[in-house]
Write a protein that binds this DNA or RNA. Structure first.
Lengths: 137, 137
DNA sequence: TCATCTAGGTGCTACTTGCACATAGATGAA
DNA sequence: TTCATCTATGTGCAAGTAGCACCTAGATGA
């Protein structure tokens, strides 16, 4: 306590703004539209524009398991009309709230991202094309 | 090779769209505006809106070291007019190009993020406020 | 002398993700 | 009947990002 926050950083506990490829909220959103199983969710993910660089199936199954452990989804085995059995996931009320916190978080991330872009573009405008000048003098 | 890509995923090699808190491009952008040292960069990061949840100093120093190992920045010890010596970092031409690839990557991420938002909002509009209906019937 | 500020750093840990690979039921062709 | 293939779920391992606790050390002023 005497050492942490000495320089003002790392003082308000773990509150990571992770987005990475933010697969978790995408899965939650897909499940909000109706129950589904992993393989189907995997295919529907390209709706978000991941198609050029799709997610790995193992990642999706692991996220779903993790969501279930935290009570945000429930799962049931379902003998489908064709193919092997599927583990069908359903969003819970907690998962629904969790999706909302994700959206708030991602909107904040979006703001940060755009402040990066505006900083970048305004800086590039003043150094139009010639970005060596600052290191020359 | 016979197994990977069987379902069409994981077939084009490692091309992770990582953003996380995307501290790396922020540092590159700050260095593009002029040479600086870690402690100063840390303080300037709040320009991007990280202020509510600032980065840890160890993370910044490690990113700077990593950038140097990859040739994107160079560093020199500088005896300042006050306080302890500083390791001053300067962006290289490669680092400048690397920043541009980051921007392209982040713009793609921005598109994905917005397709998420539009999917979310259009879905919420049709289920205005009552999101239990789909699980009730 | 001692606390504090400035500045840089290490060790450990957790989380996310990707790749390789395993398992197994269903389905159809040879 | 056997075998490849598709559908579907999963594990093991490794790398990358980041946070927290903690350390070192010069400068500065009470």
């Amino acid at each position: 306590m005497q050492r942490r926050g000495r320089n003002g950083y790392g003082a308000q506990g773990r509150c990571r703004r992770r987005i990475g490829r933010f697969l978790e909220p995408c899965l939650l959103l897909l499940l909000h539209a109706g129950e589904s199983h992993g393989y189907e969710l995997l295919e529907n993910l390209d709706r978000f524009g991941f198609s050029g660089n799709p997610a790995d199936s193992s990642t999706i199954y692991r996220i779903l398991r993790s969501l279930e452990e935290r009570g945000f989804v429930t799962s049931m085995w379902s003998e489908g009309d064709s193919g092997p059995a599927r583990r069908v996931y359903t969003l819970t009320e907690e998962g629904n709230l969790y999706l909302d916190t994700w959206v708030v978080d991602l909107e904040e991330t979006d703001r940060i991202l755009h402040s990066f872009f505006s900083e970048y573009h305004s800086h590039m405008k003043t150094h139009h094309g010639n970005d060596n000048e600052k290191r020359k003098e």
